[in-house]
Design a protein around this nucleic acid. Structure first.
Lengths: 221, 221
DNA sequence: GGTCGTTAAGCTTTTTCGAAGCTTCGTGCG
DNA sequence: CGCACGAAGCTTCGAAAAAGCTTAACGACC
């Protein structure tokens, strides 16, 4: 899951980034409104965390612009301004949820889960495919009832596959989910990662679709 | 739909122009940054394809200048420089999307569709012709309700035919779609590919138009 | 000092392409 | 009209290339 964080405060930005990465989210951190619009237009983000007080372009403006361009990515707006007015105009501009600074990281995590759940339509605090089950709140994964230890990247990869179980997920989509926009890795990285994931889940938990990407079968083969 | 192509390389420029014209776009080809700014300001283009390495004015400069003048026309930036830096500065300067050279004609066509869709708000990642259906996002193809396994090239060929279903698609256009602008293959390759595609879809899914190319009938024969 | 994540390298599998011979189509000529 | 011939397309086969798998090794970060 790829989160676009738009926040100009360096200290707060890096704190949020690290916190989210510990929760196995992939975070791309942008510092101003201009890049935010570009990053949003790219369409690879699953969720945007948007600070309203930004340099170069106001956060609200970013949001309106994105919605005008029919970008449907869910947006959670963050602001220090604790006023009804700001809240209303944020939601009016197309935000999906709202956080008043300062906030607790737990609360942020809860909102993220709630917003993405709403967007996927179905309850999604827990992903289940076959005998694999993933708890997004605690980042715990179990396989045949046994608790499984996954690394951050393995978790991100598995989540991306489980969210679209039964469908082919293209290589590039996986790379975006796992590495975000700013990291460039060679094509081997995903393969090594897939290898180690398969070692933990069994070789046929994930099918290779040569030339395109991978697929996790909805029912075990 | 009117596309402004800004590219100084004569060979590449004319190849792109011809390719796009075959896709029924109207193309104006400009060769330097100075004219590009003028052409953009004119406002008649629906989309701009901008090469970053230009004589007389750098492509980035063109882009910034245009945005400064509030020209809202969507811009897809093309560059040989495969670096995060170039990508970010391109998007920062106001590009809507990004292509790294060398690219495939198909990819270009996809980006054009994606960008214009974003601007007009219409979605279209599913192609359907007769009982064949293709999902461009997941690379899944079904034929009479059954899922079909295609290779990369078969998929590209089928996509090119389905996009122009009901029309004759010239050999050359197909070769460009499948192999890109720079790769040269012998004339036999397409025939071999067509053969394997027909083996999967049935012999009469695609009609041969002797001397010109192939056509996929809009309604099954 | 250990875990994690990446690149590099060698190996396996699948795809792709060219070559060669065969078939079909269209045309021109007897 | 019918036949012969050349060009375009079809089919098969095998070698080369590409994609993916696996292991090893190194650096970064705890």
């Amino acid at each position: 899951m790829h989160i676009l964080l738009v926040e100009d405060d360096l200290q707060l930005g890096s704190a949020i980034q690290r916190a989210l990465e510990r929760l196995a989210y992939t975070v791309t951190w942008l510092r101003d409104g201009q890049s935010a619009i570009a990053g949003l237009a790219d369409g690879s983000a699953d969720l945007v965390l948007l600070d309203l007080g930004l340099p170069r372009r106001d956060g609200l403006e970013v949001l309106r612009e994105a919605r005008r361009q029919k970008v449907a990515t869910p947006v959670i707006v963050m602001t220090a301004r604790d006023s009804v007015e700001a809240r209303v105009s944020g939601l009016d501009a197309g935000a999906d949820d709202y956080l008043v600074k300062p906030f607790h990281l737990d609360e942020l995590a809860a909102r993220i889960r709630s917003v993405t759940r709403r967007h996927h339509g179905v309850a999604a605090n827990r992903l289940e495919v076959g005998t694999i089950s993933m708890d997004l709140a605690t980042a715990e994964v179990s396989y045949r009832g046994e608790r499984l230890e996954l690394t951050r990247r393995e978790f991100a990869l598995l989540q991306a596959l489980m969210e679209r179980a039964g469908h082919i997920v293209r290589r590039e989509a996986l790379e975006n989910s796992i590495y975000g926009l700013d990291t460039v890795v060679g094509r081997g990285a995903l393969e090594v990662l897939m290898h180690s994931l398969r070692r933990k889940l069994g070789a046929d938990a994930v099918q290779t679709v040569r030339g395109f990407g991978y697929m996790m079968p909805r029912e075990p083969a």
